[in-house]
């Protein structure tokens, strides 16, 4: 049988590829964090409809979501040096453009791209928080920042989580295009290795496995976070509570489950008696 496909190689070369995993992770973490922060700011601008910034954000999101990431990487790689040269020219400075590490261009492009997607996820999540929750917090006398921190962020965070994870998974795979910025990430390293062995197919299989495993791990982390942050489905057990003291006999000691009228306590004050009577009558009328 001809040696067309070396199945063993698919797995044996994985450790070599993993030596470049830190580059991929560095790109992912840096672009993810910057993208999240920037996306959050843009989302706030969109929720508050801040004049001028709102219009700018609309164009920003539209352009970044509407152009391929590889094109954005090229624009970053070629555009930022040109921009810096102009800055040198205008300010009379003499920065060394070549000393800028190429990984920075890749991180910036990926971060801007992420921020556009994340901004939309976060904006949708913030507007999905029930206004009644905010009113309740405000009516307690919480300041605007307390309401944001204690109510909006936690609730919007849970809503945004699946969308943000989705975006992050997209980002990890987006880093495989970083080679266009002269960054040797995992994919680029694989291509270089395959270039000398001509085992391209095996190499791409290995890469597919690595990316897929990373994504699997991320999915698990996401699911775990979602479980942690959301309200448990199961109601907890009731607390064991001491019987209430005599003066407090009037409050209902147990929540009447059904037909609550039957659990009216003994009535001895005329005021309460009238009330209970009226209430009881009302229940009758309703039935």
């Amino acid at each position: 049988m001809p040696d067309l496909f070396n199945g063993k190689l698919v797995f044996t070369q994985i450790p070599q590829l993993l030596r470049y995993l830190p580059v991929t992770l560095e790109l992912t973490v840096a672009a993810g964090v910057i993208g999240l922060l920037l996306g959050f700011v843009i989302a706030l601008i969109r929720v508050k409809r801040t004049p001028v910034l709102y219009q700018i954000s609309t164009v920003y999101i539209s352009v970044l979501r509407g152009t391929p990431i590889i094109v954005q990487l090229y624009i970053s790689y070629f555009g930022i040096p040109i921009f810096l040269k102009y800055l040198n020219y205008w300010n009379g400075t003499n920065w060394d453009i070549n000393s800028v590490p190429p990984v920075l261009f890749a991180i910036l492009a990926l971060a801007f791209n992420q921020s556009a997607f994340m901004a939309e996820v976060i904006r949708a999540a913030i507007t999905a928080v029930d206004p009644g929750q905010l009113e309740a917090a405000r009516s307690l006398g919480m300041s605007a920042s307390q309401v944001r921190r204690r109510v909006i962020l936690p609730q919007a965070g849970v809503i945004a989580l699946p969308g943000l994870m989705n975006s992050l998974i997209g980002l990890i795979k987006g880093t495989s295009l970083a080679f266009v910025c002269a960054v040797v990430d995992m994919t680029a390293a694989g291509q270089i290795m395959a270039g000398s062995s001509y085992r391209y197919f095996e190499m791409y299989c290995s890469l597919a496995i690595i990316y897929w495993v990373i994504t699997l791990l991320l999915e698990r982390v996401g699911a775990w976070l979602e479980r942690r942050l959301s309200v448990p489905e199961q109601a907890p057990a009731l607390r064991q509570v001491a019987q209430t003291e005599p003066e407090q006999a009037q409050p209902a000691q147990t929540a009447p489950a059904r037909g609550s009228v039957r659990r009216l306590p003994a009535l001895n004050t005329p005021g309460i008696a009238t009330l209970a009577g009226t209430v009881a009558k009302e229940v009758v009328a309703r039935d």
């Binding site: 907890p236 009731l238 509570v241």
Partner: peptide, 15 residues
């Protein structure tokens, strides 16, 4: 306790 729900203290609104 005054509203008769001390035993329900650990319940979330959805419960």
């Amino acid at each position: 306790r005054n509203v008769g729900l001390e035993a329900w203290a650990d319940h979330y609104p959805q419960h």
